[in-house]
Simulated assay, not measured.
Amino acid sequence: MTTTPAAPAASPWGPLRFAENGPVRLAFDEWTEQTGPSARTGPTGGEPLLLATGLGANRLWVPDGLCRMLAEHGFTVVRYDQRDGGQSTHLPATAARNPIAALFAKRQSAYTAEDMTEDAIAVLDELGWDSAHLVGVSLGGAVVQRVALRHPERVRTLTTMASVPGDVAGLRALPYIRLSTLAKFARLKFPDTREGAVAAGIEVTRLLASPRRTFDEAAARAAVEANPDGGVYDQEAQSRQIGAQWHGPSIDGIDRPLLVLHGEDDPLIKPRAAKAIASRVPGARLVPLPRVGHEVPEPSWERIVTEIRQLAQSS
């Protein structure tokens, strides 16, 4: 008796696309899975929502389950890779070769934080979206704050998670960062192979997880084997991202509806960073996430999506 191999599961994501900001190409894709018998897909199928990823991480680190829930709550979801991450353009090396060195460097010549801000706008332009709800995780949270300062007309609502204030960089960011955790990242050394990327992904996931939840190594391995992202240990690329300096106004000038999410157990970015953002932006709402580290674990998805939906409805 012969059996026919099962067909691979269809991806819930549409085709890989690119936006351009000068010489930089930004990789992005759109959630297209039907979420119900009457669901629609594409830019007219829901309120536009753009997800910005964190330091070094590609867009696939945003959990599919979270994106599915956002789609079910009426959003058209697009995620993109920051420059120097994923399938977006990677820039030439600079003097700073690890994130700690980049924090202490006086000058970063690769690009500015304004350049990274315009990357997000380039993706919106390529999509044909006049405005969107912006959601940024970690570094992505700082980026979307800066979008709201430079292009408020393009922002419907703003959600940051596990982020520092968008107007700090370099030494000014130090009060919000746990250097002991950043040092652990700097010590990670893995071969530049698929196996190395998997091993690095597991260790990074372990470092960022809440210590109040049992670490599920099997689940972590399955996730990183499906997404062996070398960006999580590409310290040179991370140093260019973290070293990008902001020259714009303070976040006190943000006038878009803002939701500030932060894991109570975040081992990388101190919760005081979220309190600083919420205290400085008029009308911002701070929502601590219990038993959450510098991550987006499944038990937090419902709360996150509910809060983002309520923010959209109130805007």
Rank of each mutant, 00 (worst) to 15 (best):
A71Q: 00
T157R: 02
S163C: 12
E203C: 14
Q245G: 09
P288D: 13
T117M: 12
V232L: 02
S210Q: 06
G243V: 10
D29W: 02
G36L: 11
V144N: 01
P228S: 07
P43C: 13
P175L: 12
H262L: 12
V155F: 03
W129H: 15
M69A: 03
G170N: 03
A199W: 08
P257H: 02
W246I: 12
A9W: 00
T306M: 05
R212D: 15
A27Y: 00
D167N: 14
A10D: 08
V281S: 11
V123G: 10
P249G: 15
S11C: 07
A120T: 12
T112E: 08
N98I: 04
V147M: 09
A237E: 03
Q145Y: 04
R291V: 03
D255K: 14
L289D: 03
R256N: 13
F215P: 12
M1A: 15
P228E: 07
V292N: 09
A105K: 01
R291N: 06
A93H: 12
H151Q: 13
L289I: 10
A278S: 12
L139P: 00
E33F: 06
A102H: 05
V296I: 14
K184H: 06
T112M: 08
S300W: 08
L311A: 01
P191E: 10
P165E: 06
G230A: 11
G54S: 14
L134F: 10
G42A: 13
G293R: 00
P63C: 04
S131T: 04
V296H: 00
D125G: 06
D130C: 15
